[in-house]
Amino acid sequence: MKYLKFVFFVVIITFFTSCIKKPKEYIPTNKLEKLKKNDSLMNSIIDLRIHFDKMYKDFDSSKEFQKFISVATIDDLIYLTDCDIPLVRCFAFKGLLVKEYPKIKEIVLKHSNDVEIIKRQYYDIEITTNVFDYMLNELHPMAKTKFKLSRKEYDNYLLCKKK
C-alpha cells in the first residue's frame, strides 16, 4: 500500500512539474550570408572570426575589431545582433556599445533567453558563458560605458533571465 501511495505521489509531482511553462529559447533570425553584397563588411567579419575564435579580454582594441566597427553601420550592427552565429552577435553588440547606440538596453532585453554558448579568454583562463550573460556583463553597473545599468536595473535583467 505504501508503495502504491509513493508511485501515485511521484506521478502527480511529475505531472505538475511538466506543466510548468518553460521560457522560450532565443532563436536568431538573420543569416550572415545575406550580407554578401557588402564585401567590406563581410571581409571585416571574416577577419574577426579568423583572429578571434573566442572573446579575448581586449579584443575591442584590436585592429580587426576597429575595422569592423568602422565599416559597419548602426543598421548592420543591429542586423548582426540577430545573426545565427553567437560570436558575431556579441561582436555586433560590442560595436553598438562602442558607437553609443541609445537603444542598447532593448537589445539586451530581447536576448534575455539567448543561451548559446561562447568562450571568453582572460589571460590563461577560458570561461564559457552564454550570449545574454556576455551582453549583460558589458552593461554591468561597474562597467566603463555610458550605458551601464544601475544596480536595480541589473538585478531586474537577471530576473528576466530566470523567467
Rank of each mutant, 00 (worst) to 15 (best):
M1E: 07
M1Y: 06
Y3G: 08
Y3P: 03
Y3E: 14
Y3W: 14
K5T: 09
F6S: 14
V7E: 07
F8Q: 09
F8P: 02
F9M: 12
I12G: 06
I13P: 04
T14H: 10
F15S: 07
F16Y: 15
C19Q: 13
I20V: 11
K21V: 12
P23R: 09
K24S: 14
K24I: 10
E25P: 02
E25K: 09
E25V: 08
E25Q: 08
Y26N: 05
I27Y: 07
P28S: 12
P28C: 11
T29A: 11
N30S: 12
K31T: 14
L32N: 03
K34D: 14
K34I: 08
L35G: 02
L35A: 03
K36R: 15
K36A: 14
K37W: 07
K37S: 12
D39K: 14
S40W: 07
M42F: 10
N43A: 07
D47P: 05
D47S: 13
L48M: 10
R49K: 15
H51R: 14
H51P: 05
H51V: 08
F52V: 01
F52M: 03
D53N: 08
D53Y: 06
K54L: 11
Y56T: 09
F59E: 03
K63G: 05
F65L: 03
K67Y: 02
V71S: 03
A72K: 01
A72P: 00
I74P: 00
I74S: 03
D75T: 11
D76N: 15
I78A: 01
I78Y: 00
Y79W: 05
C83F: 01
C83Q: 00
D84I: 06
I85V: 11
I85W: 04
L87Q: 01
R89H: 13
F91H: 00
F91Y: 05
G95S: 06
G95H: 00
K99A: 13
E100V: 12
Y101K: 06
P102Y: 06
K105S: 07
K105Y: 08
E106L: 11
I107K: 03
I107T: 05
V108P: 01
V108N: 00
L109I: 14
K110S: 07
H111E: 05
H111W: 03
D114Y: 02
V115W: 04
I117C: 14
I117N: 15
I118F: 07
K119P: 02
R120I: 11
R120N: 11
Q121C: 15
Y123S: 15
Y123W: 15
D124Q: 11
D124C: 14
D124R: 13
E126M: 12
I127P: 05
T128Q: 15
T129I: 09
V131I: 06
D133W: 05
Y134Q: 03
Y134F: 12
M135H: 01
M135R: 01
L136N: 00
L139K: 01
H140Y: 07
H140W: 06
H140N: 08
M142Y: 10
M142L: 15
T145C: 13
K146S: 10
F147W: 05
F147N: 02
F147P: 00
L149R: 03
L149K: 04
S150A: 08
R151L: 13
R151G: 14
D155M: 14
D155K: 13
Y157P: 01
L158P: 10
L158R: 12
L159I: 08
C160E: 08
K163C: 10
